[in-house]
């Protein structure tokens, strides 16, 4: 699998997995009155400010076969979590978590309780109200979250390098490939991939800012 296909696969998997994990987390953050809220918000926002190498370093330790998580995975599947595609997905999910959670949280907060109460008064159960009222009302928040998460995962480098290394077909994504091309003074190849990524990122951001200015990502 070439770096481009692998990158798209990684970004797609990460985005879908984060949709599933991020929705309940964002919902909880939007409506909880718990005192733990600022703590969880801070943890969620950490990847925005930490150098990717710090995140990658700790993930590498956590996923190594001698650590509890890595050992558990090894027993379960017979393969190591480090230097594998699944390991990359887990790392990318943590790295891109704020890009999924923050727009969703802002969207849910913007909707508020009122439409959900109205739905409850029309005999809709909480899950029914969430699916038929909250999600459609948060559509723009979802669009922002999906696009930003996807784009951000495509652009990651440090975490991938630390956790996944540079294994062609398994962990060699575009950003790693560019790094390799530059190291080998393969500037023509590096230009192609870099230019492509630059254009892609610009188009994505232009799309997000044009369609929707309401749920920006905030740091902290």
């Amino acid at each position: 699998m070439g770096p481009i296909t692998l990158t798209l696969l990684l970004a797609g998997t990460t985005t879908i997995a984060l949709l599933i994990v991020g929705t309940p987390l964002a919902w909880w953050l939007a409506f909880t009155k718990s005192r733990a809220k600022p703590v969880i918000e801070a943890i969620t926002a950490l990847p925005l400010v930490l150098p990717p190498t710090v995140l990658g370093f700790y993930l590498l330790i956590l996923m190594s076969p001698t650590a509890p998580l890595g050992g558990f995975w090894l027993n379960l599947t017979g393969t190591t979590l480090t230097f594998s595609f699944i390991g990359l997905v887990v790392a990318s999910m943590l790295y891109s978590l704020p890009f999924m959670v923050q727009p969703l949280q802002a969207a849910f907060e913007g909707i508020g309780k009122a439409p959900l109460e109205a739905a409850a008064m029309l005999r809709a159960s909480p899950l029914d109200a969430f699916i038929t009222v909250a999600i459609p009302a948060a559509a723009r928040g979802y669009l922002t979250a999906i696009v930003l998460t996807f784009a951000h995962t495509i652009g990651e480098f440090g975490v991938v390098l630390m956790v996944g290394g540079n294994i062609p077909g398994r962990t060699k994504v575009i950003s790693i490939a560019i790094y390799e091309h530059v190291e080998r003074i393969n500037y023509a190849e590096a230009h192609m991939l870099s230019g492509g990524l630059l254009a892609f990122s610009f188009v994505v951001l232009l799309f997000v800012y044009t369609v929707n200015r309401r749920y920006p990502v905030r740091v902290g």
């Binding site: 009122a114 439409p115 109460e117 109205a118 739905a119 409850a120 008064m121 029309l122 005999r123 809709a124 159960s125 909480p126 109200a129 009222v133 459609p136 009302a137």
Partner: peptide, 16 residues
């Protein structure tokens, strides 16, 4: 609330 069978008209209509 959704099992009580109350029709509620709010101050603000809260249409979807």
């Amino acid at each position: 609330a959704h099992k009580r069978g109350i029709g509620f008209v709010f101050q603000n209509p809260r249409l979807f």
